[in-house]
Simulated scan of single mutants.
Amino acid sequence: MITEFGLSELWEPETRRDPHAFYARVRAAGRPVPQVDPAGNRFWVVARHADVLEGLRHPEIGHQLPGLSHGEGEAERIASRQLISLDPPDHTRLRGLVGRAFTARMTARLEPWIAEVADRLVARARELGSFDGVADLADPLPVNVIAQLVGVPEDDRAMFRAWSATIVSASDWDGSATLAFAAYLDDLAALRRRAPADDLLSELVALEAGGDALDRDELVAMIQLLLIAGQETTVDVIVNGIRLLLTHPEQWRNLRDDPSLADAVVEETLRFRGPVEIVPPRFAFRDLDLAGGVIPAHERVALSLWGANRDPEVFADPDVFDVHRSDVRRHIAFGHGIHFCLGASLGRLEARIMFDRVARELGTLRLAADQGDFRLHHGGLPLTL
Rank of each mutant, 00 (worst) to 15 (best):
P153Q: 12
D198Y: 04
R194F: 05
V320F: 11
P32R: 12
F5H: 08
A351P: 03
R25P: 09
V265S: 04
L149H: 08
T178Q: 15
R157W: 01
Q64G: 08
R273A: 07
F131C: 06
E9M: 13
V314R: 07
I223K: 13
I242R: 03
L191Q: 15
A104W: 03
V36M: 07
E208F: 08
L149I: 05
D212A: 12
L255G: 00
V239R: 03
F5V: 02
P382A: 02
S171V: 08
T178C: 14
R194C: 10
F22I: 05
R325H: 06
G55A: 06
L227A: 11
F160W: 08
P140K: 00
I295R: 13
A165P: 11
Y23K: 03
L94F: 08
L346F: 00
F160M: 10
S260T: 04
A291P: 03
V117P: 04
L179I: 13
V205T: 11
L128M: 13
G343T: 06
V26S: 08
L305C: 12
D319I: 02
A229R: 09
L305W: 13
Y23V: 02
P312A: 11
R93W: 07
R77K: 15
L246N: 05
L270E: 06
A147T: 06
V46I: 07
A118P: 05
T107G: 12
A24G: 14
P38T: 00
G347E: 03
A190E: 11
S69R: 15
I228G: 06
L86G: 05
H331T: 05
R25D: 08
F22Y: 11
S169N: 12
V205F: 08
D87F: 00
T234E: 04
A135P: 08
P140I: 00
A182E: 07
D156R: 13
R25W: 07
M106Q: 15
A221M: 14
A302S: 15
E232G: 09
D311E: 04
P259Y: 00
D18G: 07
A209L: 10
S304P: 10
V328P: 01
A147W: 05
D236H: 10
L245V: 01
I146S: 04
R352L: 03
G73L: 15
R192E: 11
I295Y: 09
G30V: 02
A165K: 14
R243A: 13
V52H: 01
D215W: 09
L226H: 00
E313D: 15
E111K: 11
H298Q: 14
V152D: 11
L290I: 05
D156P: 04
T3N: 14
G337P: 04
M354H: 00
E127P: 13
V265N: 01
G335H: 00
R300G: 13
V266A: 06
I353E: 00
R124M: 09
M1I: 15
L383E: 01
D172Y: 09
N144M: 12
P275F: 04
A165V: 14
F283K: 11
R310Q: 07
A162V: 10
